[in-house]
Computed example of a mutant assay.
Amino acid sequence: MILRYIYGGRLSLEKYDTSDIIKILIASNELCLQELIIQLQLFLIENKKDWIEQNFSLVYKTSFENDSFLELQNFCIELMSKEQEKIFNSIDFTSLSEKCLISLIQHDDFQMDVIQVWEHVLKWGIAQNSGLPSDPSSYSKDDFNSLKNILQHLIPFIKFDNLTSKEYMDEVYPYKKILPKDLRENLLKYFMYQQNSEQMTIIEETKTKSIDSKIITIKHAELISKWVDRLEISDKMKNSYEFKLILRGSRDGFSPNKFHEICDNKTHTITITKVKDSDEILGGYNPIVWNSNYGYNITNDSFIFSFKNKHSIKGYILSRVKNEENAIFNNGASYYGPTFGFGDFFLCGNDCYDVSYCSNIYYKKSIRESSNDFSVDEYEIFQIMKD
């Protein structure tokens, strides 16, 4: 195949298995065929994304064995920052190197619940020693010591104190002997102390709540409230916010003029949109005022986000502002609605915001996979206030 490329300058990859293309990539690197190396990487990324996700360990290991595979390296890094769950659910997850797994769970944008992290780290550790039973009640002293040695470098990166008392007692405590003694004792004291207050918190947080929205549920609102307070998804809520509906497209109209009429000079607003012909939900938080003056406004606390649908908060994307001087863009023109950054989340157009789009300029990451324009089925703006 490589000879065919060398002498013919062309290569048809569609008929080859993906694993064979990986082997060809490695061989191309050994032969210093730089143009072919780039072509193979782009083909894999553009056409074999699902296969890469399912065989992440192999691709990650291959890509970082040589600096020539920069495209694959960047793809892996992007996947680790945005879609960690796919890596944990990949076919060869337990083949990940310890270094890769540590890098994954300590990533700044890591979004999985701590209990899920623990379960996957445990699964990985047990897989490293095929002789270990799955039931810790049948472990011998040597079994515990073996698992302790395997996980000794990973355990410091697990935020056990973000677990509930029940999660700790049910899922971690049976493996207590693999934890360092001082950590084990401190956690036991912590969860015994927290148990009563946690029970009160659970009672308080599970009281019947509602939100006047056609787009999101109270679960979405609670997560957004945590983001406002710069909390992680697994953290306990610091403040309870009332989401006061001040604008709804189907009630007040989708006109940018109506947006400015209702929302100008209001602070701490949440914009929520439902993308037309999709379950996709997009939104943004603006802690400062909207106005009709032309220009950017400064804040370090704004963020934009997306959810896959109304029925779940899983798979969300949160993107905080990275250039505070360009956080919020105001424009009183008749076709400009709420605008975050330079089109990072931009509602525009007089027909249901029909030329809206999301880019990635002044916020940390894009909240949409597609850069195409979209229209909205519905949009709502809430002003949030502490209860």
Rank of each mutant, 00 (worst) to 15 (best):
S356H: 06
D229V: 04
D277M: 01
S370N: 14
R320H: 10
F56H: 09
H220L: 03
E261H: 12
Y190Q: 08
D67Q: 14
I2F: 07
K61S: 15
C76W: 11
F243M: 04
M169G: 00
W51H: 08
I384F: 10
I87M: 11
I218A: 02
I304E: 02
K244V: 11
P156G: 02
K266C: 04
F88W: 04
S103A: 10
G253P: 07
G253T: 06
D301M: 04
D235F: 05
F382R: 08
G343T: 00
I52C: 14
E30H: 13
G8T: 07
T62H: 08
I367S: 06
D344I: 07
T271C: 13
Q152C: 12
Y7N: 13
L132Y: 06
K258T: 14
Y357P: 00
Y363E: 04
N291R: 03
E85S: 14
F69I: 05
I216T: 01
C100Q: 11
Q152E: 13
D161E: 15
F345V: 01
L179C: 02
R368Y: 05
L79S: 14
V355C: 14
F374Q: 03
S234C: 12
S68R: 12
T271H: 05
Y353C: 10
L154P: 00
A333W: 04
R184C: 11
N309R: 06
C358T: 09
Q195F: 14
K86Q: 06
I272S: 01
D170R: 09
Q106P: 00
E78S: 14
F254I: 07
S255G: 01
E167T: 01
L101N: 04
I91Y: 14
T271P: 01
Y294S: 08
E83D: 15
T94K: 09
Q128W: 04
I45W: 10
N239T: 13
L101H: 05
N350F: 01
Y139V: 02
K177S: 12
V376N: 06
K48V: 00
K266V: 09
L44F: 09
F342Y: 12
S250M: 07
G337Q: 04
I381T: 11
E242Y: 11
N145Y: 06
D67G: 15
E204Q: 13
L72A: 09
I87G: 03
L42R: 15
L151M: 15
Y285T: 05
M200T: 03
P133A: 01
N55C: 10
R230E: 13
F75V: 02
F157K: 11
G253E: 08
K207V: 08
F340K: 07
V117K: 02
C348L: 10
E324A: 14
N196Q: 11
Y363K: 02
T201I: 08
S210N: 11
N291Y: 05
T299E: 05
S28L: 07
N331S: 14
L188V: 08
M80Y: 02
T339V: 11
N162D: 05
D182P: 00
D113A: 13
K209C: 08
G295N: 04
S19R: 12
K244F: 05
F303C: 08
I288C: 02
N186C: 05
V355N: 10
N293C: 09
N372I: 03
